[in-house]
């Protein structure tokens, strides 16, 4: 009786898991199925073909968009790590006038809904002449309130004696941050790195606003405009192929670093 109950339990749990995974499986097989089979596809097409991918490459500059996404997401991640640790260090280990004020301002900006700043930020981009440049995609994201708070929190747990010893050895503040604190803060760096890269990779609203030149588009924007713009010409397979290309890099990274992804995302939710 107990054994039957246990088997039923695992069957139910597996059904739950399938609900979350099967749609992605369907998307992948639909992208490599012949176009006329997608409408009735459930488990396996009768034959496999890469026609959808070939047509996609023909219609949209997906390779360029991939490179743009890599450039933008990497630049933002590096910037967030560098600036975040500098500011987090000042806020946790240095004493100066206005420190608490800055900390409260950072907390306040985290609660500010972005709906209020969206239009003015776009106007700033126009006035700077940054529309259709990498600057518009990268610069506004280089500073991130949450990452500063997380660095501050983490640095607080590192003993002051470590910093004092480094200072006696003649290290300047930047050397303290990048040579002493960074090697001792790998969990924080991995967490912030993953969430920042993932968020930048998946960001789509802001690119839709500031980029019109197709050669500068990141993957989510290009795939979105392809899907809604009618250029997929109601060819489902091509649309799904472009969605697969957009998902692939993050899913691959997730398969290798699953534990870090889950921990990172969970810690951001808890901090908020």
């Amino acid at each position: 009786m107990k054994k039957i109950k246990s088997i039923l339990f695992y069957v139910a749990l597996t059904v739950c898991a399938v609900i979350f995974v099967y749609p992605f499986y369907w998307m992948v097989i639909a992208s490599i199925a012949p176009e006329n089979e997608i409408g009735s596809l459930t488990l396996m097409p009768t034959s496999l073909t890469l026609t959808s991918y070939a047509q996609m490459v023909d219609k949209i500059p997906i390779g360029g968009a991939f490179i743009n996404s890599i450039i933008v997401a990497s630049s933002i991640t590096i910037g967030v790590l560098i600036f975040g640790s500098m500011i987090g260090y000042a806020l946790s280990k240095l004493v100066f006038k206005g420190r608490d004020l800055i900390f409260y301002v950072i907390i306040f900006t985290m609660t500010l809904p972005f709906q209020i700043t969206l239009i003015p930020q776009y106007i700033i981009m126009v006035k700077f002449g940054w529309i259709d440049t990498y600057w518009a995609l990268i610069v506004p994201y280089l500073i991130n309130a949450l990452s500063i708070i997380m660095f501050r929190q983490y640095f607080k747990s590192i003993p002051d004696s470590l910093i004092d010893a480094a200072r006696l050895d003649g290290c300047n503040e930047l050397q303290i941050i990048f040579r002493i604190l960074w090697p001792n803060s790998m969990p924080a760096i991995i967490t912030i790195g993953i969430i920042t890269f993932m968020a930048s990779w998946n960001e789509v609203l802001w690119p839709l606003i500031v980029i019109r030149d197709e050669s500068l588009m990141t993957m989510p924007q290009l795939v979105t405009l392809f899907a809604v713009g009618g250029r997929a010409e109601s060819q489902l397979g091509v649309k799904l192929a472009s969605a697969v290309m957009l998902a692939l890099p993050i899913v691959l990274a997730y398969l290798f670093f699953q534990k870090y992804f889950i921990q990172s995302m969970a810690s951001t939710g808890i901090k908020e």
């Binding site: 993932m198 990779w201 795939v223 899907a227 969605a243 957009l246 993050i250 995302m265």
Partner: peptide, 9 residues
Amino acid sequence: LPVIVSGVV
């Protein structure tokens, strides 16, 4: 899995 994948996908 769906959490990490882009909303576009």
